[in-house]
């Protein structure tokens, strides 16, 4: 392997790593706020990419029906759960977020989709369709389990993952899709050929990381989210409802997932079940970060991407073996580095 090959692989790894990083960040966010290891995170990537692909072809994506259905179920679930304390205002708010919003998104999509709008509009539509699924899924699946153990929440997450993957197969079929790149520009840096699309990915990832950082450091909502992550009871005592912060966390998860899908879909073919494997690698990064630290999750994700790229060059049939076995020493190192804590997981 010479330097130019190494650089190409490095570039390839960093780009893939950036997507893993986005998912890793999202997993850390959801876990710290809600204790849910959000396995279905990857499905949002697939849904985002394939929805965009359908819009690009001028077809109305079936995901809008899912959005409507999830909205209705979420509304019913909320009204049922809060049936004793329900005020007219609350009902109106639920109707607004869970019924009117998806209906509006669906209507606009059905109107615009056959007209093949410019790519910016397609992307905006995709994000608008996928993002609200995050909070709806939270309210249906996880809110009723808020106090359950991490293990139960994990299994519930697997249930959601199974259902969403199945829906993906119904909506999009078994074959994959790929979208047109936002930019077909190519830049030459030394011996390295860099595509405009990869710069987009890096740029958006960096911007999103910065935005998340600013959100957590500077805004009141962000601080509230962090407070919930540190201490659920404490957060409640100072007037932050955990269900509110959870809703925000899942909204962000939906948004980041859909955005990752939009970003990655011009680079590679996405299938209804691609999300799981991408999500798993994001999960690897998140775990290396102890499900706690955003910068470490980001760095670990890039590391996973690079190791993967190098492994696919050296020993492609054992690529997954290499990628996954290499994390065990990392985990051991992380364990030894961390103080021994009693695992009080009840």
């Amino acid at each position: 392997m010479d330097l130019s090959i190494f650089l190409i692989l490095l570039q390839d790894g960093v780009i893939n790593g950036a997507i893993y990083a986005l998912l890793g960040l999202s997993l850390v966010l959801v876990f710290t706020v809600t204790r849910v290891i959000f396995i279905p995170q990857g499905e949002f990537v697939s849904f985002g990419a394939l929805t965009l692909a359908l819009l690009e072809r001028g077809q109305t994506p079936a995901t809008i029906w899912l959005l409507l259905a999830l909205g209705v179920v979420s509304a019913v679930a909320q009204v049922w759960q809060g049936r004793r304390t329900l005020s007219a205002r609350r009902v109106l708010a639920i109707a607004g977020t869970d019924l009117a919003l998806p209906a509006a998104v669906a209507a606009v999509t059905m109107l615009l989709a056959p007209m093949k709008p410019p790519v910016v509009v397609q992307i905006a539509l995709t994000l608008a369709i996928i993002t609200p699924m995050g909070p709806y899924i939270y309210r249906m699946a996880f809110q009723p389990l808020a106090e359950a153990s991490t293990l139960v929440l994990l299994i519930a997450a697997i249930g959601v993952h199974l259902a969403l993957t199945g829906l993906g197969l119904v909506f999009f079929g078994a074959e994959g899709s790929r979208t047109e790149p936002f930019s077909s520009a190519m830049f030459e840096i030394g011996s390295l050929l860099v595509s405009g699309q990869s710069l987009w990915i890096m740029g958006v990832t960096a911007a999103l990381v910065a935005a998340l950082g600013a959100f957590f450091e500077l805004t009141l909502t962000g601080k509230a989210l962090r407070a919930t992550a540190v201490n659920r009871l404490g957060a409640r005592l100072v007037g932050i409802a955990p269900s509110m912060s959870s809703t925000i966390a899942f909204t962000l998860a939906g948004f980041i997932g859909a955005l990752s899908g939009v970003l990655v879909s011009p680079l590679t073919t996405i299938y209804y079940d691609t999300g799981f494997l991408i999500g798993l690698k994001g999960f690897v990064a998140a775990i290396i970060a102890g499900l706690a630290s955003y910068p470490i999750a980001g760095a670990a994700a890039i590391l996973v991407g690079v190791v993967e790229a190098l492994a696919s060059f050296w020993a492609s049939s054992f690529k997954e073996v290499i990628v996954f076995l290499i994390i065990i020493p990392v985990l051991l190192w992380r364990t030894w580095g961390a103080p021994v804590v009693e695992e009080d997981d009840h």
Binding site: N16, T268, Y271, L277, S312, F313, S316
Partner: peptide, 20 residues
């Protein structure tokens, strides 16, 4: 001889090796 997984998002490494 190179291998890849059905849902892989990148086969750059394998392509470079093949071409080498």
């Amino acid at each position: 001889v190179e291998r890849y997984n059905r849902p892989d998002t990148s086969v750059t490494g394998q392509a470079l090796k093949l071409m080498a």
